[in-house]
Design a protein around this nucleic acid. Structure first.
Lengths: 184, 184
DNA sequence: ATGATAAAATAGCATTCGTTATATAACATA
DNA sequence: TATGTTATATAACGAATGCTATTTTATCAT
């Protein structure tokens, strides 16, 4: 009966993902994507109602990339440092993705790293094992560490500072230590 | 002889500045600006060769706004806290400006707050008066405080977190204190 | 008043974008 | 092989953008 599909949804999303990764979201458009796929714009609009719909699926793939970077064994020691390093490494390896996920006007994205995060509670509890603080104290500590980490990640993603992995590890390590030791 | 000029460069830049302040840089275009000025697009292109030229002048005005926010008496006590609070307050009051100045891909903008900053040395020295650290130690401390401050400012500018002035002051105050006390 | 001159209005061009109407081509089934 | 179905190509529409050619209008020295 029908002609076999040449362009599947997945490969279109993959190509769009690559464009966004290399050149940012505002460089993604139907013609550019078609060119990358060596086709006309038809397969795109045949598979997706609108560009917006396609971008939604790209978002999902971007978020999956982030999640895979952040999958860390919470039983490990130095949880905070490892989580922080992963977060910053993500910002370094995928600056465009980081900007999309964490440096844009917020609507529903807060959930990614705030209280609603599924990992939030686990992180606090993992931290408690090492610091022996109360849940509330640990929570305050966690927020401060996270803000500092986020600060570095933003600077890295925008290329405002260029830091090696070792420099980042030192900076994060000593600061987290000082934040802990300096508590009243 | 000639007709008197009705639209001066300054008022055009002012109107553009307002649009950027309220709606961001990518909402600025010739027709929208003309509408705000109650004129056609002609006065704009008569006064500026291109939109890019106009935007350059808007950038200058934005940077001036930032500088006026950051003009702080360095002889004051709690310099760090005051500078940090000003930086964050700027991000809160002018999120679009903050994003333009400090949350975009960097080219020449590093100068705003890095070593090349004219205030950089004065800030370090002012800090030394209170901490009695060596210049190098004070420098390290300064960078950490700045990263933390920048982290909060980014979160505020993107509306990822909503913090009152008091909450910001507490967060910044206690963290800077802990960073100082926790040093090896 | 009038004419020279420059500012501003009008209307349009060229480009880029999302999207779609139409035509063509490929493929499974009869 | 013929037919129906559908994926893809071609080409174009309509809106938004930067910018400009042309016309209109206001000012001021004469």
């Amino acid at each position: 009966m029908p002609k076999k599909k040449k362009f599947q949804k997945e490969e279109i999303v993959d190509a769009a993902y690559e464009i966004v990764k290399m050149h940012g979201l505002n460089q993604l458009n139907a013609r550019r994507l078609a060119k990358k796929l060596n086709c006309s714009v038809q397969p795109i609009f045949h598979n997706f109602k609108t560009m917006e719909d396609l971008i939604k699926e790209v978002h999902v793939k971007i978020y999956q990339t982030y999640v895979s970077y952040m999958s860390i064994n919470l039983d490990d020691e130095k949880v905070y440092k490892k989580i922080g390093m992963s977060y910053i490494q993500f910002a370094k390896d995928f600056p465009e993705f980081f900007k999309i996920l964490f440096m844009q006007q917020t609507n529903q994205k807060v959930e990614y790293f705030m209280r609603t995060d599924t990992m939030y509670d686990q992180i606090i509890q993992a931290g408690q094992k090492m610091t022996h603080l109360s849940y509330e104290e640990q929570e305050k500590f966690h927020i401060k560490v996270w803000i500092f980490t986020h600060g570095i990640a933003c600077l890295v993603a925008t290329n405002t500072v260029q830091l090696s992995e070792q420099e980042i590890a030192d900076l994060l390590g000593t600061t987290v230590m000082e934040m802990m030791l300096g508590r009243k």
